[in-house]
Design a protein around this nucleic acid. Structure first.
Lengths: 170, 170
DNA sequence: GCGAATTGGTTACAGACGTAACCGTTTTAT
DNA sequence: ATAAAACGGTTACGTCTGTAACCAATTCGC
């Protein structure tokens, strides 16, 4: 019978969550202090910036954000005049989003900040460990990032296949 | 001049956050469906289970949970009669937390589930990549997990030291 | 062509969150 | 000895979150 004890600080999901949170929080201060942006807003801006012209659902798919988060972030960014909408002419449900001139300026600044941060992070980790981390993350994504239930909350992540049964439950 | 574009899906903090979220969410279904527990409750239970007798602040420190989350989770777990409190006799501010009999039973079941999940996860990643991931996470923790401001929100994580200037970079 | 189902996007609501303020207790400094 | 500071823990409050319900526009099935 296996040890009835779990050391939380060696437990992979916990460690992953913990590390991600620490990095996220650290990085977030950079755009929060400077631009008063929230995490979803940063992601949406980054995604619109990356694609130039994109719809809300595509943003959600690409940035792993729940549709309501995207919707709210878009409203906020629109209010700041960083992005603007234009309804599609063929399908009037669709709204295309683009950066305004100010939006582009802000995006450029944020990209610079983001890249600088990533460089610093990688430097702090060391090239060796950074590469290992990247590989590990690749594997995680491969293991449970699949186009699953079309409606699922954050979409595109699946459960790990269940092999052996822990309890007598079925 | 560096490319004014950031590919979000190659951006390390994003990838880390995404992977962590996917795993967390996947794992969470296991204790949520079975026991109707929230993430903070799971962490608190796991921590009390691991240490046997522990205070609320120590739980927060050890499980990277904000003190209010710990407080609320403890209330919830107490209501389910899975943990119980006892005020310290020497210092009446301190409350020691322990698992009740039912709490222990539940903890044991959850540990089994957790370990099984971790095994499945590691199997899905492959031993090689799992090890790399673990090393990468070690590095992240080393890079920004330091006993910092005593009051800081989630405590014990620091900012990355700011070194060179982004603009004038070679 | 027309009702049912689907889709893009927003919103109402209830719960979860973090900040800050707080209470009672202990420690520190004088 | 006592006032101030520190500490363990809870709570009030405004914000953020996800679920589900919703609206309008489009597509599907027949």
């Amino acid at each position: 019978m296996p040890k009835a004890l779990l050391e939380l600080d060696h437990f992979l999901p916990y460690r992953l969550s913990r590390a991600a949170e620490a990095v996220s929080r650290d990085f977030a201060t950079l755009y929060r202090e400077r631009y008063g942006m929230t995490r979803p807003e940063w992601r949406v801006l980054a995604t619109v910036g990356q694609f130039g012209r994109i719809t809300a659902t595509a943003i959600g798919r690409h940035s792993s954000l729940h549709k309501t988060k995207v919707s709210r972030a878009v409203v906020a960014l629109e209010k700041r005049r960083w992005i603007s909408r234009s309804t599609d002419t063929d399908d009037r449900r669709i709204e295309h989003l683009t950066l305004t001139r100010e939006g582009v300026a802000c995006y450029r600044a944020l990209v610079t900040i983001a890249k600088a941060y990533e460089r610093r992070l990688i430097a702090a980790l060391g090239d060796e460990q950074s590469a290992q981390l990247a590989h590990g993350l690749d594997a995680v994504e491969a293991a449970l990032t699949i186009a699953s239930k079309p409606d699922h909350p954050t979409s595109q992540t699946t459960k790990l296949p269940v092999g052996g049964e822990p309890t007598g439950k079925r």
